[in-house]
């Protein structure tokens, strides 16, 4: 069984200035595997600044890892050339986080969609190209006759976001990295778009990495989840287990902070302890905010395996067997 994508101990450090001592570790020792013949949907969740977009940028080859390597179909993406490189560019697609930033204001929506069709030779002729474009736009709830020919500034926030999703649908990649793809659309459309994404996985064998802070939609669409905090994995496993029974104090805070559309379930029983201005650099990264912090937490906790499909990096579970980061993927259901 071959691997579609493999991350081996990947870290990313942003240097502040050239010789500054304050390096910012945006991602710390991440190992992950996605199998070629088991398309899955994996959620990456975590607060603002936890390293989610950094992970997406690494997978897309837009930035390079400081240490560790990323393999696509067994080859390091940093060294891809010629045909392999074109295949990777075509097969790995993204929906970017900020729909206000990615559009070139001088081109109409059509341009955004026709360029990849031409570049990757997706259509047999003009009519075919037009049909594909219309099909993709309709799938995200847009009317082609209204949208084609318009400039980005003439569209609402959610309309721009959906054009990005339409572009990804058009390309039918092998791996889709979707960074907050539905944050600006309403619940009903959100349901429609997520269903489209799930069908893409189920019927077309597309693996999806769904980056979000919305745990409710993560629960509905994903199979597995990885919870990041300051660049490190706090908890990972089966999405049902992690969201219904979170074991790491940080995941517990996240789940507790979900605003439910239910008047009888009030928001946030637990008080929020604000994150400290300058971070604790050693030990458990969540220590400063953790209501259960102990003396031992001053050293960095390893991952403990809580059950066959759930692990948490927290000393509250140190009676459980440790699991090395490289084997984390084995817990994640496909």
């Amino acid at each position: 069984m071959s691997n579609l994508l493999e991350l081996k101990n990947v870290s990313k450090v942003y240097q502040r200035g050239i010789i500054s001592p304050h390096a910012n570790i945006a991602l710390r020792d991440i190992s992950l595997t996605l199998k070629e013949d088991e398309p899955t949907i994996m959620t990456v969740a975590g607060e603002s600044g936890s390293g989610k977009t950094t992970l997406a940028m690494l997978l897309l080859g837009f930035i390079t890892a400081t240490t560790g390597e990323i393999l696509y179909r067994g080859k390091n993406i940093a060294g891809l050339t010629g045909k392999d490189r074109l295949a990777y560019r075509r097969e790995v697609q993204a929906v970017f986080q900020d729909p206000f930033a990615v559009f070139n204001p001088f081109y109409t929506v059509d341009h955004l969609l026709t360029v990849p069709i031409k570049r990757f030779k997706l259509a047999r002729n003009k009519t075919d190209a037009r049909n594909r474009m219309e099909e993709a736009l309709t799938a995200v709830g847009l009317r082609p006759e209204d949208i084609l020919g318009r400039f980005p500034h003439q569209l609402s926030g959610g309309q721009r976001q959906r054009i990005n999703v339409a572009r990804a649908l058009l390309l039918k990649p092998r791996l889709l990295i979707a960074d907050e793809p539905v944050s600006m659309v309403d619940a009903s459309l959100r349901a429609n778009i997520l269903e489209t994404l799930r069908n893409l996985q189920r019927d077309h064998g597309v693996s999806i990495i769904y980056i979000t802070h919305d745990l409710t939609t993560a629960y509905h669409i994903a199979k597995s989840i990885i919870v990041l905090y300051r660049g490190g994995v706090m908890e990972a496993g089966d999405v049902d287990a992690v969201i219904k029974s979170p074991q790491h104090p940080y995941t517990q805070l996240l789940v507790d902070s979900i605003p439910w559309p239910n008047l009888n379930q009030r928001w946030g029983e637990h008080p929020i302890i604000a994150r400290e201005a300058d971070s604790v650099s050693t030990g458990c990264p969540f220590r400063a905010r953790c209501p259960k912090a102990m003396e031992i937490c001053k050293t960095r906790p390893p991952l403990f395996q809580i059950n066959p499909s759930q692990a948490a990096a927290c000393y509250l579970h140190d009676k459980q067997p440790e699991i090395v980061a490289e084997r984390l993927s084995e817990l994640l259901p496909a």
């Binding site: 309709t138 709830g141 847009l142 009317r143 006759e145 209204d146 309403d186 619940a187 009903s188 459309l189 959100r190 349901a191 429609n192 997520l194 269903e195 799930r198 409710t216 939609t217 629960y219 509905h220 669409i221 049902d240 969201i243 219904k244 439910w260 559309p261 239910n262």
Partner: peptide
Amino acid sequence: QALISSLPNLDNKGVFQGIPGLAPSLL
């Protein structure tokens, strides 16, 4: 009514209940 019934909760995993059809064109 459709909007309220499309809301997600933890009891109906994987059930997506969007409102069928497209938003109308303002034009």
